[in-house]
Nucleic acid binder design. Structure first.
Lengths: 237, 237
DNA sequence: CATGAGAGAATTGTTAACAATAATTGTCAA
DNA sequence: TTGACAATTATTGTTAACAATTCTCTCATG
């Protein structure tokens, strides 16, 4: 239970807490850890083969980034963004990421472009293979990759946090089928980078973010009700 | 030594780590903790009357925000931003804060305006009284206050981090006399808020940030050399 | 006089035990 | 059967001791 890390089951000890944070980030982005999931210390200890201290530090870091909520004496839970928080996250993304795209367009080297092309191919591949988890994760990582190309680690960290929180928002308010991104829009942005057209890159990014935003219905909390229903109907053993 | 908290020397126990983080933030903004200062666990424990755990958690939080650097087995030091990091911080501020100002102009209520007016008066007062520490802190807090008025806690946290790191940058690369902000530019921004002129607010903020940026000389690291000299000349007991 | 080795002190990292709080189960009475 | 209450269990929060590493000071040596 609580299988966060896939693969290597063996000599995983000695893992540092940044790696733990990243693994949990990924699991959340892939929506394998839905909002509200309890992250008990014991589970995480055995999942990562580390002591309680590491787990505790990791949870604190996750909480400081709004991805996990620490409740006093009650433990850590995957955050459940409120409507207000969701609006704030989207607003922050619209503020930051268009400029990230602009800077990326100005600074992308040949190598960067190739890397982005390879990434988009992986995205397409994942979608072809119907690997939804992977597709969602790669889709989110595209945005982080852009920040990397923009050569600004400060903003890269911010984008990483915002992308992760967006996954939580989609998990709560999105309809079941929605993926994080339209892939074709990623291609368009990449095309703008190729053309070194920074204004276009920024505009396309803003448009792209608005599309993501319009796929979630923040006005109603029906998602949470649906959860209740599914629990009640699916749990009768 | 390491007098971070002023005032209340007595029953300060029970302080939670967010308060510790804020106190250190303030001390850094006021430039009472210059870049490179060692923050030993023992000092902080006695400074705040808390156990080692709290201090450790606080330092981790500060490190995750780029304000403190944790060196393995060697302890925590107030961060010394490199030239590259400084450029990134400024770039992030130019990305985020103009839009923060724009949103603030749209959303400021009468109460908000009054609060900002009061804040500017405190700034002027501090400058009149030649209270440099207070003046610097209030000057930085103006930017955070704007984010609060914009009603976006996500961006507020980002601005807080960026303002603090800017203080470090000024401490390292600024000439001794430079304060963080020109006060009159704050007034101009406030005037734009009053007029509900969001475009003007954004433009003024961008201009303001460029001015701050131009007051530090990132091309040379002379500041660090000065530090070295002062250390060598002042330490011969 | 400078340099390096080494012992001791100080500081940080980790573990484990203990205390405090919350969740769960079981019991009893209405 | 249901609801409240008590005892047990599980989980989190805290403290203290221990281990490991780094720092500092001394002293011998080139």
């Amino acid at each position: 239970m609580l299988k966060i890390a896939d693969g290597d089951m063996l000599p995983d000890e000695g893992i540092d807490e940044e790696a733990i944070v990243d693994r949990i980030y990924e699991a959340i982005i892939e929506q394998r850890l839905p909002p509200g999931t309890k992250l008990s210390e014991a589970s995480l200890c055995s999942a990562f083969n580390v002591g309680r201290m590491r787990v505790r530090r990791s949870l604190l870091l996750l909480a400081s980034r709004g991805v996990v909520e620490l409740q006093n004496n009650r433990g850590a839970y995957v955050a459940q963004p409120t409507m207000t928080q969701a609006l704030e996250v989207f607003e922050a993304r619209r503020t930051i990421e268009p400029n990230v795209a602009r800077l990326a367009a100005r600074r992308a080297t040949e190598t960067d472009i190739n890397q982005l092309v390879a990434h988009l191919e992986m995205e397409a591949e994942a979608r072809r293979k119907r690997d939804r988890h992977l597709a969602i994760r790669l889709s989110g990582q595209f945005h982080v990759l852009l920040a990397k190309v923009a050569h600004n680690e400060v903003m890269e960290r911010m984008v990483k946090e915002l992308v992760t929180r967006t996954s939580l928002i989609i998990g709560m308010y999105g309809s079941p089928g929605t993926s994080n991104c339209h892939d074709d829009e990623h291609s368009e942005i990449l095309q703008a980078l190729r053309n070194m057209n920074s204004d276009a890159a920024a505009a396309l990014m803003e448009q792209h973010l608005r599309h993501i935003e319009h796929e979630v219905d923040l006005t109603s909390e029906r998602k949470r009700e649906v959860d209740l229903v599914s629990i009640l109907s699916g749990d009768n053993s």
